[in-house]
Structure formats: structure tokens, C-alpha cells
Amino acid sequence: MTSDMSAIKIENITKTYEKGKVLALESISLDIKRGELFGLIGPDGAGKTSLFRILTTLLLADSGKATVEAFDVVKDLWDIRKISGYMPGRFSLYQDLTIEENLNFFATVFNTTVEENYHIIKEIYVQIEPFKNRRAGKLSGGMKQKLALCCALIHEPKVLFLDEPTTGVDPVSRKEFWEMLGRLKDRGITILVSTPYMDEASRCDRIALIQKGKIMDVDTLDHILEKNYQEILGVKAANRYDLVKAINQFDNLKSCFAFGGEQHVVLNDGFKSKDEFQQFLIEKGIENLEIRVVEPDIEDVFIKLMQENSND
């Protein structure tokens, strides 16, 4: 192999659908290191699935170049198919086959056996093994997801592509799933994972924020938060509906969005007009008003970047 540390290299990939009418990916470039747990974060329709399909050789890009473990996604199709594990967005196992049958089937398809590679999936598989004679269609979301991961791992792939593995899964199962990914990463497997849940960014080594086919930023979570810092006020009151209406009447308002129990408010000149803002709300008759300074999180940043992007 080359001394190049990249596991996945994407250069200026553009993809359109319907003869160029729908732009799915606009000149995307990424460099994912070997052994990295990399998160592709963005809402549905951002282009995540298109990018996954291009990297897993299922789709051809309109232009640009991409390699996986130095294999070209167009020319070296069969090499890539040998070394990648892929879990598509939709649950893609045979519903009428049991856990065990599914696993054996995918093992054979990838020219291996469950016995040979049991050590790789063991940790995950033991959790579903008691139900191995149950049909996949009768499993809960969390169990299906574990089975799908086992099937994607059974041939010990060098690179693992997981397209929205946690969508529609409850927070407990999601947490467990990310813990499993952390352990797979420790084995040296490169993992590219996409998710619409912004809070999962903290689980990744590096993340790319993707929106409308464009990558808005790529870095570690900390760096992204740092780079995109803005002064944010957390505002709370007795009646939230009235509060939001009042905030939106304030002249110097840049943005106001709900975050959990409070509204995150950004003013055009930051904290400088905080007192003026507070006075304004009191005059509007807002009761039980609480205003505090908050540290922006990844969703604040995503919203900020989205707005900046839509302004140009």
C-alpha cells in the first residue's frame, strides 16, 4: 500500500439527477484518514446518500474523482466491493430469514464464514444471539440495526459505510450503537457514518456539515464550535408563544430559535444590546423573563452556517 494515510479521498465530486435538473452534490471534497470515525451530518436531502452510493460504487458521479483505500470508485469497482462494508439507510436484510440465516447468507456472499470472522462481530452478535432463530422482520428497531451492522462487518471490511444507521431509533439504542462504533474504530476500521441527529457529532473524530449538496465545514467538533462562535442568549418566560412573538418584534434581532426549554437568540451586535433587549421584552409585558448567556452547540452552528449559505 501507499504511505498515504487517507482511507477515503473525495475530490470535486458533483452529482446531478434528472439530466442535471436536480443538484445532489456540488463539488464535494473530503479527505478521511485511515482509522477515523468520520461523521457526515446534515438533514434529509442534503446529499448524504448520494455520496455514500458514489463511494460504494453504486452510482457514478457526473464529475470529480474519489478513491477508497487508493482504489478508484469507477475503475476499481471490484476491489472496493471486497474491502467495504455498507449499511444502507433503509433496513436491508431479508425479513423472512432468521437472524442466523441472514448472517450466514451475507458471510457466504462475501466469501467468508461466520465461524472464521466471529471475533469481529462477537461483541455485537452476543446481544442478539438469543434470538437467532427469530425472523428479521419480527425484530425491534434496535435489534435489526445490530444485525445489519453484523452483516456489514462479517467480512472484516477495511472501510465501513453507515448511511443513517440511527434514524428513527430511540435514544437508548442510539447511544449503544455509537458505543459499538467507538469499539470498531479501536480495531482500526475506518468508519464513515451519516446522521441527521446533530448531537451525535460529539461521537465522531471529525465531522462534515452538509446541506443542500454542499459541505459547509469540515473539522473536529471543537474546532467547528470555536471557529463559528457567536454570542447567544438563552431566553425563557412563562408563556413561550408570547415570548417568541415579542422577540421577533425586536429591531436588532439576527435570529431566534427554540432550543429545548428556552429560545436561543442572536442579536446583530451580540451581547452589547443585551440590556436593551431585556428592557424591550419587559416592556412587552413578558412575565417570568430569564435571560442567560449560553455556549453555542453544534445545532447553533449548523443554523448559523445554513443562514450564511442561504444569504450568498
Binding site: T57, P88, N111
Partner: peptide
């Protein structure tokens, strides 16, 4: 339709 073809396609078979 169910997406299993997607997984089979991304295999050396």
C-alpha cells in the same frame, strides 16, 4: 425495492 440489492451489489459476488 427493499434495498437488499444495494447490499448485494456492494459485495465481491
Amino acid at each position: 425495492e427493499t434495498g437488499t440489492m444495494e447490499v448485494l451489489l456492494v459485495s465481491p459476488m
